[in-house]
């Protein structure tokens, strides 16, 4: 009886976790700009990770595995919750500073209003694809000239 209830709880937690991972993935695939994708990806890091690790902890307790395993799952969840905002903040600021355009212009932009020119940087490593595309124009030109054959 006890184990049936526990199995049901674990299954519900796993379904919630997979649902929010699906939400995050759909957001990343369907959102029109970088900033929306970044907001959607937070769902994966928070509720999905928490629910799956909680299910794991419940399973470890019911199955009577060693306590070190449960502690490791807690460490994993806490670690993801502590580090994910840092990487998200660095990513969002970098995308803003190198001038990624939102799909529609921002309705309020206080960072540009307060910092002016310093809010953006011209110093970026994000070159457009044409800068790397050596197989495009040059190769077809050379093929027309017949130097390669």
């Amino acid at each position: 009886m006890m184990s049936t209830v526990m199995t049901a709880i674990i299954a519900v937690l796993l379904i919630i976790g997979a649902f929010f991972a699906l939400i995050g993935t759909m957001g990343i695939l369907r959102m029109p700009d970088v900033f929306g994708r970044m907001q959607a990806s937070t769902c994966i890091a928070t509720l999905s990770t928490i629910c799956v690790n909680l299910a794991g902890i419940l399973y470890v307790i019911t199955a009577g595995l060693s306590a070190g395993t449960a502690v490791k799952l807690v460490i994993l969840a806490v670690f993801v919750l502590v580090t994910n905002p840092i990487s998200n903040h660095a990513l969002c600021k970098a995308a803003y500073r190198i001038g990624c355009k939102p799909a529609e212009p921002f309705c309020v932009d206080d960072l540009a209003a307060d910092f002016g020119e310093e809010a953006h940087t011209h110093n970026t490593a994000d070159l457009p694809d044409s800068a790397f595309d050596v197989s495009g124009a040059d190769a077809s030109q050379q093929a027309e000239e017949g130097e390669l054959q």
């Binding site: 900033f35 970044m38 907001q39 959607a40 937070t42 769902c43 890091a45 928070t46 919750l81 994910n84 905002p85 998200n88 903040h89 969002c92 600021k93 803003y96 960072l111």
Partner: peptide, 8 residues
């Protein structure tokens, strides 16, 4: 960490 807002 709350989805929808990011501190810049």
């Amino acid at each position: 960490l709350t989805p929808g807002t990011i501190t810049m």
